[in-house]
Design a protein around this nucleic acid. Structure first.
Lengths: 333, 333
DNA sequence: ACCTTTCGAGAAAGCGGTTTCTCGTGGCAC
DNA sequence: GTGCCACGAGAAACCGCTTTCTCGAAAGGT
């Protein structure tokens, strides 16, 4: 096969321009103060040899890679994709690139993956809902600078962006209650995940306020398949409404119920969470709690940029989901 | 803020173990052949100091970063997200990470972005449908090893994975024809994109076979918004069927037509392309040409792995889309 | 005309590893 | 007892770039 092409180095440019590598470096970085003719010669040589500095060598010397890591549970989830897309675009404007990784194959490796990938770059945006609090706190110093996503209540000292899942699902439940539903099911997410925990708490406070509500929890998951598989469980639970862990589960659930001959929303109302772009186009459209994922990505970069610049990052913020009432919910028969 | 923590270096481990850095390096990489007690001492020292080699320094010395780039027109497009997700998972199994970038903000910079990001890693998976052929061929040597996506017909010497858009859209058109449609619209993609060109060719060969078909082309785009905006144009074109550039456009179009009081598929049939996960859950579900995106990501990694190992990559392949007949198409009124 | 600054640019020391080269030691054969 | 070889591990060069340190020369002051 083709012999791997060797890139031209700073030494070659220096030789060609008849100067030292130090001078080439200075010219390339705009720190040159000497005669214009010299700078011009260097630029010409660089141009002719099609030279551009090795980011690797530069990174080693400078101690900075202009790269940030983005670690999430599952890259296949549209919610994370939206964050990634916004994060990448924002970072690119500052000349930074994003290195990605997901931990879907082995949730227990979240920490190992994070620390490994972190060493390859300057900072990390970490979404690790299943990492135990103790692990996170223990590793925090090695991960800095970092921005956390969705770890409300953590004692880790880092800027954090989160979604108020508790309030969000509470509102969804209230909506169902107002429609007249009294028997509901929660189609749960991974029991080890923090975001699932907050949804359960939100529902707990809801049921505390409404003793006349009967709420059952059924096994769900995080994807469309999981939602579809949960359809049978929801039906046999004998409820008139189901709150799904997220939109994917809701979409799968609606589809699964349809296959079982259960009409949504006529027989059972269904809610999602996230408001992924397709929730509104589903048949029926999904009533959900809307989360500003792009905004999350943008803000993550803002925090990140401040951190790598050694400045004070903005405050941690908790986004309030907005209720999106659509076609998948209606009064019970 | 917190003083940036300095990582322990190989020299410190060496000092602690009472050996030279060379020995530590050998032990860490399993190339050590000396006495076991020495190796044990090194391992202990590394453990105590919580040492792990700097990937950056390692990369410089070894000339390899164990990172590959993935460049696409738009990370927000679910089709690319599916490829990325599969690519990242496959690469991770071999200890590689993926660096991402999109060129959505400035399509003309595709080449600049690709060459810049390429220098940060060992190889690149490039999906650059709008890059002029001459530019691509000119830069090919600098980009190698690379795997191309969707550049059928290019003379660039690199493994390529592509979708047979030409045949795919031809089949979709035939499907509409069989249903009885004779006046159709093509809701186009970006005119500079190669994949749009192939769709046009496919349609050209279709109309050549069916002189009784009238086909008009209307401006479209790549996203849901573009599809929605195209609804008015489709309606005023007076057609009974519309072939959208992709599923996103189709979803937007269906939605837009609905808002205009045009029923799909009763008044107008609509087809998409890609079969993104949500096409089947749309209301109505979208008739489309199914593209195996995850497979594309997996195969991209296979080629990549072969290339970086200096082996012969597998052959270039062209995936044939599979027709998915769903609810958005029906005989004309 | 002499001494002190200032200035331009090269030499060299990192950055943190890997690897080739080298050398001292101990074991074995004769 | 001497010579040779194998072996274990350190010294040093290198990967490609940045930056401090250094120094010679030119400029400026008296």
């Amino acid at each position: 096969m083709a012999t791997r092409r060797r890139r031209t180095t700073i030494a070659e440019v220096a030789a060609r321009a008849g100067v030292s590598p130090a001078t080439v470096s200075r010219v390339m970085n705009g720190r040159f103060v000497g005669e214009d003719t010299v700078a011009e010669r260097v630029r010409a040589a660089a141009e002719e040899l099609d030279y551009s500095p090795s980011p690797l060598a530069r990174g080693l010397a400078l101690g900075t890679t202009r790269t940030v890591a983005f670690v999430v549970p599952d890259l296949a989830n549209p919610a994370f994709q939206d964050i990634l897309s916004a994060l990448s675009k924002s970072a690119a404007r500052s000349g930074y690139r994003v290195l990605v990784a997901d931990s879907v194959e082995s949730p227990s490796d979240e920490l190992a993956i994070a620390t490994e990938i972190r060493r390859r770059c300057d900072a990390i945006v970490l979404c690790a809902p299943r990492m135990p609090e103790s692990e996170l706190v223990g590793a925090i110093e090695d991960l800095k600078p970092l921005v956390l996503i969705n770890r409300p209540g953590t004692s880790a000292d880092a800027p954090m962006l989160s979604i108020d899942y508790l309030t969000g699902i509470h509102h969804l439940a209230e909506h169902l209650y107002a429609l007249g539903h009294r028997r509901m099911a929660y189609v749960a997410g991974p029991s080890t995940s923090a975001s699932d925990r907050y949804r359960r708490r939100g529902l707990a406070s809801f049921t505390a306020e409404h003793p006349d509500v009967e709420l059952v929890t059924v096994t769900g998951g995080v994807g469309i398949d999981d939602g579809q598989a949960a359809a049978a469980r929801v039906r046999s639970a004998g409820v008139t409404a189901a709150l799904a862990f997220n939109d994917l589960v809701a979409i799968g659930l609606v589809h699964g119920l349809d296959e079982l001959g259960v009409a949504v929303p006529d027989d059972v109302s269904v809610t999602g969470f996230d408001d992924i772009p397709f929730a509104r186009y589903n048949s029926p459209s999904i009533t959900t709690a809307s989360v500003p994922h792009e905004e999350l990505g943008v803000q993550a970069w803002d925090r990140m940029a401040a951190l790598v610049a050694g400045k004070e990052p903005g405050h941690s913020v908790q986004f309030q989901p907005r209720l999106e009432l659509r076609g998948s919910t209606a009064p019970p028969r």
